[in-house]
Design a protein around this nucleic acid. Structure first.
Lengths: 126, 126
DNA sequence: GCTATAAGTACCTTATGGTTACTAATGGCC
DNA sequence: GGCCATTAGTAACCATAAGGTACTTATAGC
């Protein structure tokens, strides 16, 4: 596997110190995927995100957005107005994440009926 | 969107009660993806999984496996021996999850350098 | 002066995750 | 015969993260 000219050996995903695993952990957290999918259709203000993502607590949304900003997946633009206006947008790297996340999301959607059936069967036998 | 002949309306992923979101949440938890990727190469015993996934606590591994079993993604086969032997394996539905999970995992792997750079830049300016 | 507004932060409570120790049942070893 | 090792967990406890609600800052409009 080669990334921009530099040899890049596939790390051991199962090693707790593996960088890939740390990132996978981040992406897979409770809100990150939802925020990225929300920003897919264009930049959004803090309140729009907060109200648009089934009642996420502001504290948690802030944390999630700060992490995304730190990871270079989202930009945060502050307008010096009163009341304040802060606009979040995906970076190109953030946009590149939409495809894999959508793949997982679509998988989930397609398998809702089968999973629900499996759960009912499991619960009935227990 | 149509799934096996039945009309299936794309739910609102941003609604906290959306079934898709619940499943997405499950998939994205800390260990599920790792367990599925571990089982990709064939059935494994409890201890093999525990030792193979960078020191996951047994309690948490049990929880993860029980959820996967309940969701119909993994089978659990107990052999009445002493000491006991329990073998976990992916169901066909579990196998179908490998592809989207791998997509996310590959994305993470490819972007490790860029994310690391972004983090360093962010931390330096703060 | 009073109120509304946006984007948070502070503080407290609850849920989840993590750690370590312990258990059941039997075969092999001394 | 008694003792230890082995596997797949469970139990009890503690740490961390998430969730909920209240508060803050600064200014424009009434």
């Amino acid at each position: 596997m080669v990334t921009n000219g530099q040899t890049w050996v596939r790390g051991d995903l199962f090693d707790p110190n593996c960088a890939t695993r740390v990132i996978l952990d981040r992406i897979g957290d409770k809100w990150t995927a939802l925020v990225v999918l929300r920003l897919k259709d264009g930049p959004r203000r803090f309140t729009e995100l907060r109200d648009g993502i089934g009642q996420v607590a502001p504290k948690v949304l802030t944390q999630t957005l700060r992490r995304l900003e730190r990871d270079g997946l989202v930009t945060r633009e502050i307008f010096a107005e009163v009341p304040p206006r802060v606009v979040y947008a995906l970076t190109p790297m953030g946009e590149s994440l939409i495809e894999p996340i959508t793949a997982v999301s679509n998988w989930a959607e397609e398998h809702v009926p089968a999973i629900t059936r499996a759960q009912e069967k499991y619960d009935a036998s227990a």
